[in-house]
Simulated scan of single mutants.
Amino acid sequence: EEGRSGPTHDSMQAVFDMQPFRPAVNLSNPTITNISFTLYAVLGVNEKAQLLTTFLWLRLFWRNEYLVWEPEECDGVARISLPVKELWSPDIIVYEVDDDVSQACPYVYVNHTGRIRWDRMLRLVSACNLEIFSFPFDVQNCTFTFGSYMHTRDVRVSPALTFREMSDNSKQYLEASGEWELVNILGETSILKFGVDEWDIITFWVVIRRRPVLYVVNLLIPSSFLMLIDILSFYLPPHSVDRASFKMTLILGYTVFLLIMNDLLPSTANGTPLIIYFSVCLALMVISLLETVIITNVLHHSSMKYQEVPNWVRIVVLKYIATMICYQWPEPELQLICQYLKDLHAHLLSVQKESELLDQWCHVGYVLDFLLFRIYLLLISCYAMVIITMWCIWI
């Protein structure tokens, strides 16, 4: 009560009896609620359900015009605590919240000017439109909209601190906070219109960034190693080693990464995640396996069928393509063979023909193998440069 009575038991009871009514002497004057919060922790991000779980320290301020006294007349008492359930409190909610778990805080502080401070600790599960295109180097921008549920313009909202101060306070507690780090907190006040009714709202944009080290170490680096092994497998001699079995083992191992990523990425997203490069790498490994099948088939001609190499294949592969990729012919071995065949030309004509056919098919296989290997290496290099460039831009 205003006047000389001060915060006595009787005066408090009179205020408690008016709890259902908004504490304004003139009801045409709105009650202004000041809001601030500290983002204490990001507890989890559910990409599949598009939900963000956070822990907030929320602080509300408003004025009760019935709780005003002079401290000098009350033994210097300038602030008291009262049960929140006995006083009127604004019905401030977060519009995006799917689940709200609040720890009990039964008291509020009231100073002699009637200004009330109510501190609450909230565990919020809120809807957030998650952008996972650049996963695991993604930055999320989630919205918290504070406003009254029932009251229209008779309850106004405004920030109790500047958005910069809220951001700095939150960063102080989020410095060592798990997978996510806080980038910034922005906000603005606006008016929400629904028909003829209008609500005062304050919108906060909480920008958080994922720490990608775990995903880089457990997924990207092992994936790069497998791709490197796939590239080095082209140096295995295709005529004496079962290169196809080796590549199929690599493909099987790579499939494990795709199964792991299935559990991490949302089932529906606004855009294709960048991590889809795993699927592209798998496709490249399948292409390299097809190349091995082709080369094995070519070498099969040299060892089983002894068919003569067509003239156009000799010209295109052994002449032009071999020159283009700088294929080195094994000159010393050929000279020895030629010398040997000259000495035994008359007696070993059939052996000479088989050796020539074997050499030709082997060279055709090697030239095609080198050509396809260089094309495959060029594809992987271009793709890696594009991915690295895009990630550097996002980071």
Rank of each mutant, 00 (worst) to 15 (best):
P106E: 02
Y109P: 13
V84L: 06
V101Q: 14
R79M: 13
N111Q: 02
T54W: 06
Y109M: 15
V77R: 15
L67A: 11
E73W: 13
R63P: 01
D99A: 15
L60C: 01
N64S: 04
V110M: 06
V84P: 03
W88E: 02
T113N: 14
P90H: 00
I80N: 04
V68F: 08
R59K: 12
Y109D: 15
E73M: 15
V110G: 03
S102Q: 13
Y95K: 08
P106R: 04
L82Y: 02
G76S: 11
A104M: 11
V68T: 08
V84T: 07
S102T: 10
E73G: 14
P106G: 02
I92C: 04
L56M: 08
W62M: 04
T54P: 00
I80H: 04
E96C: 01
F61D: 13
L58E: 13
T54A: 10
P106T: 00
V101K: 12
P71F: 11
W62F: 11
S89E: 06
F55D: 12
S89D: 04
S89P: 02
P90C: 01
S102R: 13
V97M: 05
C105N: 14
Y95M: 11
D99E: 15
E86Y: 10
V68W: 09
W88C: 06
A104D: 14
L56W: 10
V97A: 15
Y109W: 15
V94L: 02
I92F: 05
V108M: 06
E70D: 15
I92R: 02
L87S: 00
Y66C: 03
L87E: 00
F55N: 13
V84Y: 02
R59W: 00
E65V: 09
R79L: 09
V77A: 14
I93F: 09
S102C: 10
S102M: 10
V101S: 13
G76V: 07
H112T: 05
V84C: 07
A104F: 12
W57I: 15
L67Q: 05
L87Y: 00
D99T: 14
G76A: 08
D100N: 07
L58D: 12
L67H: 06
V97T: 11
L82T: 04
V108L: 05
E65S: 11
L67V: 03
L82I: 09
D100I: 05
I93K: 07
C105L: 08
D75A: 15
L67T: 04
T113S: 14
E73H: 13
S89N: 09
W57T: 15
I92T: 03
K85W: 03
S102L: 11
Y109I: 15
E96F: 01
W69H: 04
E72Q: 07
V94F: 00
Y107E: 13
A78I: 03
A78K: 13
V94M: 03
D75Y: 14
W62C: 05
